[in-house]
Amino acid sequence: MEIFKAEDRASTLASADYFTGRVWQDPVVSAPAPARLRTLRVTFEPGARTAWHTHPLGQTLYVLSGVGLIGLRGEAPKLIRPGDTVWIPPGEEHWHGAGPDMMMCHLAMQEADEQGQAADWLEHVSDTEYGHAPV
């Protein structure tokens, strides 16, 4: 067993290569092999969001606070709220982030493939794609 103390893991500002706006990441676990689990607590400031991306083994999101949006290619974004769990199947192009007026925090859980890859990043989400009325 190993205990990872909170005070030993600093919050980091997410890379502008993969995110629009200010997004903070806090590591939860990056389990050693043979486990594959990677989990982050991700906090999006209003209007912040991921770029389009996929996951080779899928992803689970669990919303902790705020109001967020999640988008799939060709569809209007959907609202997500505290307590909501979202399963994204392997290879599905999607994005997620905060709504325009409120922060959103979620746990992002995904497994890494045999090469250690947990996400494949694509282009940034345009303001038009982000701005579609959510359902």
Rank of each mutant, 00 (worst) to 15 (best):
E2W: 08
I3E: 12
I3A: 08
F4T: 15
K5Q: 12
A10R: 07
L13K: 07
A14Y: 06
A14T: 11
A14G: 01
A16Y: 04
A16S: 14
Y18P: 00
Y18W: 07
Y18V: 13
Y18K: 06
T20F: 04
T20R: 04
T20E: 10
R22F: 05
V23A: 07
Q25W: 07
D26K: 04
D26Q: 11
V28N: 08
P32H: 05
A33S: 14
P34E: 04
R36A: 15
R38F: 14
R38H: 14
R38V: 13
L40P: 01
R41G: 08
V42T: 09
T43K: 07
F44K: 00
E45S: 08
E45W: 00
E45L: 12
P46F: 03
G47A: 05
T50S: 15
A51H: 15
W52D: 13
W52V: 14
T54W: 10
T54M: 03
H55F: 04
H55S: 13
P56I: 10
L57M: 10
L57R: 15
L57P: 01
Q59C: 12
T60S: 13
L61R: 05
L61G: 12
Y62D: 14
S65R: 00
S65A: 13
G66F: 02
G68W: 02
L69H: 07
I70L: 10
I70F: 11
L72V: 11
R73D: 11
E75F: 00
A76Q: 05
K78R: 13
I80W: 09
P82C: 04
G83W: 03
D84P: 05
D84H: 09
V86I: 04
G91S: 07
E92I: 10
E92A: 08
E92S: 03
H94T: 08
H96G: 03
H96E: 06
G97A: 06
G97E: 01
A98P: 00
P100L: 05
P100H: 06
M102I: 00
M102T: 12
M103L: 11
C105H: 00
C105T: 15
H106Q: 07
L107S: 08
A108P: 07
Q110N: 12
A112F: 02
Q115M: 01
G116I: 04
A118F: 14
A118V: 03
A119E: 09
A119V: 13
D120R: 12
L122D: 08
E123D: 11
E123K: 06
H124L: 11
V125S: 02
S126C: 01
D127F: 05
D127W: 03
T128E: 15
T128A: 13
Y130V: 06
G131A: 11
H132N: 02
A133D: 10
